[in-house]
Amino acid sequence: MKRYEGLEGILLIDDDLPTNFIHKKVIERAAVDTAVKSITNVQEALDFITHSGIYEHTAEIPRPGLIFLDINMPGLDGWDFMEAYNRLDLRFKARLVIIMLSTSLNPEDKSMALIDKEVVTFLNKPLRPEMVTALLDHYFKEIV
């Protein structure tokens, strides 16, 4: 199992429970030693990151160093998440790497995602173990 500096956890933000389940299994197959949390809506994800709402007294739960964010969700979507995220205090986002995910083949989605300086890349679903490994090796330092 690989461990990475600054990667206490990975957060999956996607309204589709089967996709979250599959992506969690993909991360496990990538042999990453980290906590994986899946959340199905934007507001809960923001609460998790900022230790507010139902996560107010949960400092013991590992917070993410990496977020896989779905674009298309009912209600608040990935774009809404990024708008709110960009307004957060720096202490909540200092060490976060955000990857936008989508099944959309619309090139405008990728262009819009990459305009946001907080989004490091845009990938098409589903995740695969080699994608996860490549991202972690690129954005985090492996602990040997």
Rank of each mutant, 00 (worst) to 15 (best):
K2A: 08
R3F: 01
R3H: 06
G9N: 11
I10F: 06
L11N: 08
L11T: 03
L11A: 12
L12S: 12
I13M: 12
P18T: 08
I22G: 05
K25G: 07
K25R: 15
V26Y: 11
E28M: 06
R29W: 07
A30W: 09
K37G: 00
S38I: 01
S38T: 03
S38W: 08
V42T: 15
Q43Y: 10
A45K: 09
F48W: 03
I49A: 03
H51E: 12
S52Q: 04
G53I: 04
I54W: 01
Y55N: 08
Y55Q: 09
E56F: 01
E56H: 03
E56S: 06
H57R: 08
E60T: 13
E60G: 03
R63S: 05
P64H: 09
G65I: 10
I67S: 14
F68D: 13
D70S: 12
D70K: 12
N72S: 13
P74F: 06
L76H: 11
G78I: 11
W79A: 11
M82G: 06
E83K: 13
A84Q: 14
N86H: 04
L88C: 05
D89C: 00
L90Q: 11
L90M: 04
K93D: 04
K93E: 03
A94L: 02
A94V: 02
A94G: 00
R95S: 14
I98M: 13
I98A: 11
S102L: 10
S104G: 07
N106Q: 01
N106V: 00
E108I: 02
E108K: 08
D109Q: 07
M112P: 00
M112N: 13
I115H: 12
D116W: 12
E118W: 08
E118F: 08
V119Q: 11
F122N: 07
F122D: 06
N124Y: 02
K125Q: 04
K125T: 05
P126Y: 08
E130H: 11
T133V: 12
T133K: 13
T133E: 15
A134F: 03
D137N: 15
Y139Q: 02
F140R: 04
F140L: 00
F140E: 02
E142P: 01
I143E: 01
V144E: 04
